[in-house]
Each structure stands twice: as structure tokens, then as C-alpha cells.
Amino acid sequence: MTETIAPNTAPAVRRPLTSRRSVRVVGGLLLPVLILIAWQLTTALGLVSISQLPSPAMVWIAAVDLFDRGELTLYVAISTQRVLIGFAIGAALGLAAGSLVGLSRAADVLLAPTLGAIRAVPSLAWVPLLIIWLKYGEESKITLVAIGAFFPVYTTVAQALRHVDRQLVEAGRAFGLRGVRLFTAVQLPAVIPSVISGLRLALAQAWLFLVAAELLGASMGLGFLLAISGTNGRIDRILLAIILLALLGKLTDAILGVFEKWAIRKWA
């Protein structure tokens, strides 16, 4: 908020233009629309061959075609389902492990180095192992997504808990709080804003790991669509999958963003 040296007679504080909802929505759509126009122009004027860059209309037709076969809905649904289930499992485990490591010195000493090492393993390295262990079924994909979602939550929660204002924790203890009651009354509320930003990171990472999982071993889903379109040379479908991933990622992130706003108003 800018410093408005408003006299007391001013009934409401003026909000800067950039914090208005309509301005934000229109402003955010500006660049995508420009890109779309540029894309349309390049293909219409023949600056790039359509075998390299199909026109927006061709991508739209590919979408309609896939939709008519029932594949589009299926792929979007299965990918979203994998992300949501994997994200839920990974975030819950990350919250638990992060709380443990952030609150307990012993857990920090015992667990933090190992978890740090596991975290350093690149996502793709898990895929062959998971496929052998869990076959091509849902479990392997969901596990990989959960691994992806786990670490951002674990790291932010553990960090944030270590940095909770000691004076507040001490005050809580002085007023008779300990254990679970101290955690829910002081430590948890203090870290909620960081937990939510961790969750947002985790969600982005979940989509990332989903595509990794589906690219390498799946029979449906957006990553699978990317993989077979790559081998078939269907650039229109590749673009479609990329656009869908962008939209889905942004949509799920926006939902968490609403939750974040609410939580910050309540807890910060």
C-alpha cells in the first residue's frame, strides 16, 4: 500500500490501481492475447512453415478431434487425478516430516541428512525404479508425484518451524502450553504462511513430476499425449498438451492462492 497522507475526513483508504481485481485480470490476460495474435500472424503470413508451427486454429481442431474421441477429457482427468492424489499424499507426508525435523533436535540430527540426500536425486532417476517396483499402474505415477510434492513442503515447514519467534514459544510455555497444545496454539499458526507457500511450490513440482512419470511409462494422460505426439510428429497435439498443462497448473495454483489469501488474513 502506498503512503497516502490522507486527512481524517477521507472515508476510505485509496487502493492503488494495480490491486484492483479487474485490473489484475485484464493485465494478466494482456500478454497471452498478444502472444496468440503474434502466433496467428506468423502462421498466417507464412513466416514459419506449419509443419514446424501449426496455427492456433489447427491446435483448436486437434483439441476438438481429441475431445470427440473422448481422449482429451480422459487425459486431462487422469493427469489431474494423479497430481491431486500424489500432491495430497506428498504434502501430508512433507508436513509430518517437516514438523518432526523442525520441532525435534533428535529428528533433525537423524533424518535431515538422509532426506537432504534423497531430495538431491533428480526426478527422472526414480522412474525406472518405480516402474520395476510398482509396474506401469497408477501407483508408480502417484508415487513419483508424491515424491515431487513432498520435498518443497518438508523443506519449508522444517525451516519455518526452526525460525518461529522464540520469545513467542517461550511465552506459550510460560502460560502452560506444551506438546500438541503448544504446537497448535503457537508454532503451527506462526508457520502457516510458509506452509502455504511450500504447498504452492509443491503443487508446481507435482505437475513437473507428473509429466516426467507420464512421459516415460504411461498409457494415458497429458504426458503420454506429449510422448506419442513426439514420436508421431503431431506438433499440434504437443502444443495442445503444453497449453493444457499451463492452464491446469495455473488453475490449481490459483485455487491454492485463494486459500493462501484467506489463511494469511486469518493467521498473519
Binding site: Q167, L168, E170, A171, G172, R173, A174, F175, G176, R178, A185, V186, P189, A190, K266, W267, A268
Partner: peptide, 18 residues
């Protein structure tokens, strides 16, 4: 430790901001 027979008014207010 944190004797329950006492109540402390700290030098800083130490209120829970939320």
C-alpha cells in the same frame, strides 16, 4: 521449568499476532 505457580508479564508484550 516454566513453573505453573507463576505468571509472567514479559518485558516485551509477546502477544500472538494471529
Amino acid at each position: 521449568a516454566f513453573d505453573t505457580r507463576c505468571a509472567v508479564g514479559f518485558q516485551e508484550p509477546r502477544l500472538l499476532p494471529w
